[in-house]
Simulated assay, not measured.
Amino acid sequence: MRPGLPLNLYEVKSPDDFRTLLAEDLARVALLSFWTPWAAPCEQMNEVVRALALKYPRVLVLSIEAEAQEDIAASFDVDAVPTFILLRGNSLLARIPGADALTLTRALAAHAPAPAPAAPGSVSRVSSSGSETAPSESGSGSGSGAWSSPGALSSPSASSASTWSSPEPSSPSELLDELDALWCTGPGMGVP
């Protein structure tokens, strides 16, 4: 048992561990989350990854500390953190550089099996007419990972543009609330 982690979220400790976890089910969608402990955007995105692992229990989520697992990071050409890779077997489904929670959420929604049902007592966001409301597209940012530096992992500079929607969430819990709104209201993502 791994206290505090969703059952489908694994911390990769070695290349052999990585290969074993991926080989268990090649038809399963896998989210690879490359991060480092010293990069603040990674800390925020690790919270988003945990929430996505809970939301999509049939997705294999692999948390990979990029500097400790340099061989794995190099095999996916990771030169900035955070970076996210979506795979199904040996097929690349998506690559999301930077701390772009919205793009990561949308990519996972596009490729993953249906999300877990809403928890009892959770609130869905539905308009007064009974139809789902669409999320706002304004200010969502592009999250290109402006901190790339050839040959080395780097962290964002103070002048890097934010990838969060405007206004910028002040905490990971506010970001998760914003993502929850998208899960409940995004195209094809209504609560049953």
Rank of each mutant, 00 (worst) to 15 (best):
G190Q: 11
G188D: 04
G141N: 11
S171K: 04
A119G: 09
L176T: 05
T105V: 05
F34Q: 09
V191Y: 07
L87T: 06
S173A: 15
L26Q: 05
P97T: 07
T133Q: 12
S140P: 00
S33A: 13
L5P: 08
A116Q: 12
Y56C: 03
P57W: 04
L5Q: 15
C42Q: 04
L92Y: 01
P15N: 09
A107N: 09
S171Y: 03
M45E: 08
S173K: 15
L52Q: 15
V81L: 07
G151I: 00
R50P: 03
A94Y: 02
S171P: 08
C42I: 00
D79I: 01
F84R: 06
P6C: 06
T103N: 14
S166N: 03
A39T: 01
S160T: 03
P37W: 00
V123T: 14
D17W: 10
L22M: 11
T103P: 04
I85N: 06
V48E: 14
P150T: 06
S140L: 08
P167T: 01
T83M: 11
T185Y: 01
P172W: 04
T163H: 12
S75R: 09
S155H: 07
G190D: 03
R19D: 11
P41K: 02
P117A: 11
G4K: 01
D71L: 11
T133K: 13
Q44L: 02
L5E: 14
P156R: 09
D100E: 07
A39Q: 03
F18L: 02
L9H: 14
I85T: 08
P192T: 02
S122N: 12
E132Q: 10
D25I: 00
C184W: 06
V123R: 15
S160F: 00
L62T: 05
L32F: 06
D177E: 08
L104C: 11
R95E: 12
L182H: 15
G4T: 00
L60N: 12
A119K: 10
P82H: 09
P135A: 08
S154A: 10
G121C: 10
L7A: 13
I96H: 15
G143R: 06
S131W: 00
G145L: 00
L7W: 05
L31D: 06
N90R: 13
P156K: 09
A134C: 07
A51L: 04
S166D: 01
S129I: 00
L32A: 09
A107R: 13
N46T: 02
L62H: 08
L104I: 05
E65M: 04
T20I: 09
S14C: 03
R28W: 03
I64G: 09
L52R: 13
T163Q: 11
G186I: 03
R28S: 05
T133S: 13
L22I: 07
V123K: 15
L104Y: 09
L93W: 08
L52C: 10
A152S: 05
V59W: 13
T103V: 07
V81H: 10
L22V: 04
A51N: 13
